[in-house]
Write a protein that binds this DNA or RNA. Structure first.
Length: 437
RNA sequence: GUGCCCGUAGUUUAGUGGUAAAACUUCGGCUUGUGGAGCCGAUAUCGAGAGUUCAAUUCUCUCCGGGCACCCCA
């Protein structure tokens, strides 16, 4: 008997009640922080001309494998993939860019006036090990301009992104920028780079020798000391840029200067996603922690060939900026942007006695229709406990609705700070509350 | 994927080789119309599994989860 019981409990206990690793519930203050950021970011994005779009969280796996590219960690080891009952291979989006491009192609957006500019935000998924500012489900806010190769679009997207970060309270933002060329010059550059590394192959780690075959650019941002030394003498992309790329890069920098954006040309900056062309950048903010490295809060660049990589018939020159919302919201400098939808209740509704309780939902409804945000605890009975809760929540006014009031069709409005009370006729209540504001 | 630290009630923490204390919170009761305190009561098979042992929450191993760092990235 006891044995059976034990086994049942055990099997129930086996199912851990917890969210999956690296994924968490967002609620209370943190929820408002996120919500506030999203609202502000959208507001700013709209001023710059971006329109909203929301793409699915699941996509065909191949838009990522061919878009972001094999040889990147995101694809090789961090993607959540699944096979549907129908046999489709889907993946939880590890980023927003490839799905956006898919949407552009799918809906024939090349017939719209170019470029088309979108903002989008939502969760993205990467099977990485959690640590500070890193989750397996995290939130990105993206700005993208698709369909124009003009350098001013690079600048616009960067400026809009920086403005959002500033609105969120970011100080000491720095942007590292580089250009990795287009198909004209990148091939030449990569060949040069590869032959340079070949000469130093003995100093490269096994992993980096592997990379040399697949994606030599990535050796440039290696953190290994030996490799760093080699990188000092490595050919840099900018000097291999073809004339049109050089012009493009120069123009982008001019725009940034004009906008007063402090940039730093980082010739080792190449980005881990292989769809980038020409402009690439990363945005950092200072880490308040002692000795802490700067925190990367955003990054992006141009991806002129992505469309064709995922199966489009022609190139759609585009540029984007994506922000790590968790990192922004989690930063000490984040100024709590409070969402518009949250209305701090000014009034706490108290009911007393069965007759009053019976009618109390009607009163809640009257207040709701009049857009008076309230708090209440209808499940409570005693006046004392309800007052205590109102006090605890620091709500300035309470409505006391007891048996006597229910019969007389009145309600007591109590000012919590000076404890004064007025008895108000129910039909006059809304008017009375308006006066209080 | 790797390394270091960690894992006892909702939360923060005690504690022991013989199945566990406390504080706060929450909920219920005692006093059923005014700011809440008081009293009583409830809530943990000590992250999961295996092993050592007469006996493990306490020792060992594995796994899972958390924190931090690396790789990488937002």
């Amino acid at each position: 008997m006891s044995r059976i019981k034990k086994e049942t409990t055990k099997s129930n206990k086996g199912k851990e009640i917890s969210s999956p690793k690296g994924m968490r519930d967002i609620m209370n203050e943190e929820y408002y922080s996120f919500q506030g950021f999203f609202e502000k970011a959208q507001e700013v994005a709209v001023y710059y001309g971006f329109k909203p779009i929301e793409t699915p969280m699941l996509e065909h796996e191949n838009i990522f494998t061919s878009g972001i590219g094999l040889g990147t960690d995101i694809i090789d080891k961090e993607m959540y993939t699944l096979k549907t009952k129908g046999g489709d291979h889907l993946a939880l989006r590890p980023e927003h860019t490839a799905p956006l491009m898919r949407a552009y192609i799918e809906h024939g957006m090349q017939t719209m006036p170019q470029p088309v500019m979108f903002y989008q935000y939502g969760p993205v998924f990467r099977h990485d090990n959690p640590q500070a500012g890193r989750y397996r489900q995290f939130y990105q806010f993206d700005l993208d301009s698709l369909g124009s190769d003009k350098s001013i679009m690079d600048a616009l997207v960067i400026k809009a992104g920086m403005s959002i970060l500033e609105e969120a309270g970011a100080e000491n933002i720095s942007i590292d920028i580089n250009s990795i060329g287009d198909k004209e010059c990148r091939g030449v550059y990569i060949r040069e780079l590869t032959s340079y590394y070949r000469k130093h192959i003995n100093s490269l780690s096994t992993m980096e020798r592997e990379r040399l075959k697949i994606n030599p650019l990535r050796i440039l941002d290696s953190k290994e000391e030996k490799t760093k030394e080699i990188n000092v003498g490595a050919p840099d992309a900018v000097s291999y840029l073809c004339s049109s790329c050089k012009k493009h890069f120069k123009e982008v920098l001019e725009y940034l200067e004009e906008l007063g954006i402090n940039y730093n040309i980082n010739k080792n900056l190449v980005r881990g996603l292989s769809y980038y062309t020409r402009t690439v950048f990363e945005v950092y903010t200072k880490n308040e922690k002692e000795g802490g490295l700067p925190v990367q809060v955003a990054s992006g660049g141009r991806y002129d060939y992505l469309a064709r990589q995922i199966g489009g018939k022609r190139d759609i020159p585009s540029v984007g900026f994506s922000m790590g919302v968790d990192r922004v919201v989690g930063s000490p400098w984040y100024k709590k942007l409070s969402p518009r939808i949250i209305k701090k209740p000014k009034v706490y509704f108290i009911q007393l006695g069965a007759e009053a309780k019976l009618k109390s939902l009607n009163i809640v409804e009257i207040l709701r229709k009049a857009h008076v945000p309230i708090a209440q605890s209808l499940s409570r009975d005693s006046l004392g406990s309800q007052l205590a809760i109102a006090e605890k929540l620091a709500i300035p006014y309470t409505l006391i609705f007891g048996v006597k009031e229910a019969i007389e069709n009145t309600v007591i409005v109590r000012n919590m700070s000076n404890r004064s009370q007025d008895t108000v006729k129910l039909p006059k209540l809304l008017e009375y509350l308006k006066e209080l504001k």
